[in-house]
Write a protein that binds this DNA or RNA. Structure first.
Lengths: 234, 234
DNA sequence: CAGTGGTCTAGACCACACA
DNA sequence: GTGTGGTCTAGACCACTGC
């Protein structure tokens, strides 16, 4: 592991262990440099990482302060880990409705940047939180990149398999959201009523080298879906 | 302006002018270093900025590539600029329904980290896009920080006034989203029907020094609201 | 004006991609 | 193996905050 990641982890642990609250000040740069026996740039890089994660904010001329989100049980829209981590206190399960190899539609082919005669995996799942429906998910995976999936993998965390099992690295993602009304079919799956509210999230996930491998459409149950974003200013 | 910001801007312009597409490769680091007559670290810092904005992605051992979102007319959830910039092709207007100085409720006081006897500005607006209702917004501003607002300021961009008029710097934000059904009153404001879908976005905006100055609740018209996030991996 | 964080540099060395 | 991006360092100098 890189030095600045290591340092970032240690500082994160420190904040956690000291139970530091929003606005509390961390040790000054100079003392962090001595403590971790490293250069200024490396410490700053570690702090930038924590700032990006929304754990601290840095104020020039003043200090480094803890930032602490207060609400629990919200899903982080910026995390590439899915919501497993945000909802780890809850029992999240998946019911696999379909798992097929097929040819992509034009929209899917375009989003995955492949030809329409290349194979894709199609996965349809319902995800539950504590026995309640959380969302209906339809995903397409580029089979040239994800050569094999089975029901077991797909019932557990697909992304974990991709990273740990296949040794691929997830890089970035494009996400598009909109609000609408459930169709009758969607309502059935989610055990809700026709034309009740829904949130649709379309995502395209890319490997670190920029290749898209997953295109997903997720329809959330409006009763269960709360999201947060820790903005850092652009 | 800082050198690395300047360089980032120039590279951004270059991408724009060359009409570079997703996946196209930028000049290699070495040539950027020579072109901008600067050090490696400074170029990398500029590129990191562009990566954070979702404009490029960097692949170690391979190159620097353009990333280009394809969909227009979606609102960027990570921008601190509001949606003026994303929807600049459209005519966005505001109707001010209320503008008062009052005492905060407990929830407002807590989010703004002030006492309940301190004054806040309360602003209620409807925002329109091309004559259609876009959202209903209720905002509270800490009067100790924003000492004066009038109808004219509030009809235009409040954030622009805060930055340019007052010389304050917006730092970061906490945002919370959920989906629900419109109340009758909300439906009237948005010219929709009772119990149709809504997206509620609660935001707390902080200055760079960590002081919260704005707490807002925005209810979006589900017909008009599309959002995007360019994730960069955390 | 002291304290603190940020920028910028030059260069050594490292890690990954791709042919 | 070559090309390319990334990490890390030591240090000079800069810019903002708050007493």
């Amino acid at each position: 592991m890189l030095k600045y990641q290591q340092i970032a982890n240690e500082i994160e642990l420190y904040i956690e262990n000291q139970q530091m609250q929003q606005g509390e000040k961390l040790p000054v740069l100079e003392s962090l440099i001595r403590k971790f026996d490293t250069s200024k740039s490396t410490i700053i890089k570690a702090l930038d990482l924590l700032e990006k994660k929304g754990l601290i904010f840095q104020v020039r001329g003043s200090g480094i302060f803890v930032r602490r989100k207060k609400r629990k049980n919200y899903i982080n829209l910026l995390s590439n880990q899915g919501f497993q981590k945000d909802l780890e206190e809850f029992n999240i399960t998946s019911e696999v409705l379909e798992l097929d190899i097929c040819k992509p539609t034009e929209a899917v082919a375009q989003n995955l940047q492949i030809d329409m005669n290349q194979d894709v995996y199609y996965v349809k799942r319902i995800r539950y939180i504590e026995e309640e429906t959380l969302c209906l998910e339809e995903s397409y995976y580029n089979k040239a990149i994800i050569p094999y999936l089975n029901k077991e993998i797909v019932t557990e965390s697909i992304f974990q398999y991709i990273e740990d099992g296949l040794g691929l690295k997830v890089g970035f993602s494009d996400m598009y959201m909109q609000i609408g009304k459930l169709t009758e079919q969607e309502a059935n799956y989610l055990k809700l009523k026709n034309s009740e509210p829904k949130l649709i999230m379309e995502s395209i996930f890319y490997l670190t080298n920029g290749t898209p491998f997953d295109y997903s459409m997720v329809t959330y149950n409006y009763n269960q879906s709360q999201f947060y974003i820790l903005g850092t200013g652009i």
